[in-house]
Structures are given as structure tokens and as C-alpha cells.
Measured scan of single mutants.
Amino acid sequence: NNDALSPAIRRLLAEWNLDASAIKGTGVGGRLTREDVEKHLAKA
């Protein structure tokens, strides 16, 4: 759900053309954090 994404995370996902549903969020309530996105990018 994009409503739970911060503007910074939305921008990062758009910049790298990533799908938020493909990344497991570790923040409060399962929210994506910058670290989650960076770890996903490191694996790719």
C-alpha cells in the first residue's frame, strides 16, 4: 500500500524502478525503511 510509504521511500523506489511489494519492510508496522530498500538493491 503506497499510503504507508514516506515521500523519501516513494522517490527512492521510483528512482530505481522498484516495486514496493517485492521488498519486506522492517519498520514500524512493516513499513519500508531506507535500509530495507538499500539491502534489496545490494542483493540485486
Rank of each mutant, 00 (worst) to 15 (best):
N1R: 04
N1Q: 13
N1S: 12
N1H: 14
N1A: 13
N2K: 12
N2R: 10
N2M: 13
D3Y: 04
D3I: 11
D3Q: 12
D3M: 10
D3P: 11
A4L: 13
A4G: 14
A4R: 12
A4Y: 14
L5N: 05
L5F: 08
L5G: 04
L5M: 10
L5K: 02
L5P: 06
S6L: 07
P7K: 08
P7V: 10
A8T: 09
I9Y: 02
I9A: 02
R10G: 07
R10Q: 15
R11E: 15
R11K: 15
R11T: 13
R11A: 15
L12D: 01
L12I: 06
L13G: 00
L13I: 06
A14F: 07
A14D: 12
E15R: 12
E15F: 15
E15V: 09
E15N: 06
E15D: 10
N17D: 09
N17Y: 07
N17W: 05
L18A: 04
L18W: 03
D19Y: 05
D19L: 09
D19S: 10
D19V: 08
D19E: 13
A20V: 08
A20P: 15
S21P: 05
S21T: 12
S21F: 08
S21R: 09
S21E: 10
S21I: 06
A22K: 12
A22Q: 14
I23H: 00
I23Y: 01
K24P: 11
G25L: 04
G25D: 02
G25T: 05
T26I: 04
T26R: 02
G27F: 03
G27I: 02
G27Y: 02
G27T: 03
V28S: 09
V28Q: 11
V28N: 09
V28E: 13
G29H: 06
G29Q: 07
G29K: 06
G29D: 12
G30W: 00
G30I: 03
R31K: 13
R31T: 13
R31D: 05
R31E: 10
R31S: 12
R31A: 15
L32Q: 00
L32T: 02
L32I: 15
T33Q: 04
T33Y: 03
T33C: 05
R34H: 10
R34S: 06
R34Y: 15
E35W: 10
E35F: 08
D36G: 00
D36K: 00
D36R: 00
D36I: 02
V37R: 00
V37P: 00
V37D: 00
E38Q: 07
E38Y: 14
E38W: 14
K39S: 10
H40M: 06
H40D: 01
H40T: 05
H40Q: 05
H40Y: 15
L41D: 02
L41Q: 04
L41V: 11
A42D: 07
A42K: 11
A42E: 13
A42C: 07
K43C: 08
K43N: 13
A44N: 12
A44M: 15
